[in-house]
Design a protein around this nucleic acid. Structure first.
Length: 215
DNA sequence: GCCCAGGTGGGTA
DNA sequence: TACCCACATGGG
């Protein structure tokens, strides 16, 4: 079967779902907290938890004065509250200890690989979460591979079907042009959500058409 | 009531 | 290194 390349996939998917341009939010620390809340959690629940967290703690300093139980209570609706409360608290604490203040704007001065490794030293921050911060807050060419991207990338043959999630990160960052990282991320997740469901054996009504290996 | 949303880290072989 | 599992809530 003929394989799709990255440009073709982006073209087909953006024709179907439309392009959403990246908008800078210049808030890497807020993005980091939001991304920790989104780990293994639906968007609806994680957004609700983030709003509740902001309502309970107007500043990161205020959050650091609270204990983990109070933070967990604020993010209860997001699921995995005890785990995430500890991760958020420890992460903010480490940022303040390492940087002397609660901000991550300095990451913009580092090359992507170094910025990513710095973030991954924080508790609860893996490759996916680190890349989310870099691409969403700063527009850097980092490619977070979530469960949808992992699945779709294997199905369309961009990465080997036996690849690990870490290998998928490495391979996709190699083959997705830096300027397309954001589009590829957003569109592939949308596609994964709509069509290539985890337990659906065939990809129905797939916009990749005859080139989709599952259609 | 069950399935689905959907990363990280710790443990084991 | 590779795999397995705990973690918890809310919507359909």
């Amino acid at each position: 079967m003929e394989k799709l390349n990255v440009k073709q996939i982006i073209e087909l998917l953006s024709r179907e779902y439309g392009r959403s341009e990246w908008r800078p939010n210049y808030d890497p620390l807020g993005t980091l907290v939001q991304t920790i809340l989104s780990q293994n959690t639906s968007d609806r629940n994680s957004h609700r938890a983030f709003a509740s967290l902001n309502a309970s703690f107007p500043t990161w300093e205020a959050l650091l004065e609270a204990d983990t139980r109070e933070i967990a209570a604020a993010i209860r609706s997001g699921g995995l509250a005890e785990i995430k409360a500890a991760r958020i608290r420890q992460t903010l604490n480490e940022v303040r200890q390492k940087r002397g203040q609660l901000e991550l704007d300095f990451l913009n001065e580092l090359p992507v690989p170094e910025a990513r490794e710095w973030l991954k030293q924080l508790p609860g921050v893996g490759t996916k979460t680190a890349n989310c911060v870099l691409v969403f807050a700063q527009g850097r060419p980092a490619l977070p591979v979530d469960t949808h991207i992992f699945r779709v990338s294997k199905r369309v043959g961009l990465v080997d079907s036996k690849a690990s999630i870490e290998e998928a990160h490495r391979i996709l960052e190699e083959i997705v042009p830096p300027e397309d990282a954001y589009q590829f991320h957003v569109l592939t997740i949308e596609h994964g959500r709509r069509t290539c469901k985890a337990r659906r054996p065939r990809c129905t009504e797939c916009v990749l058409g005859k080139l989709c290996p599952l259609s």
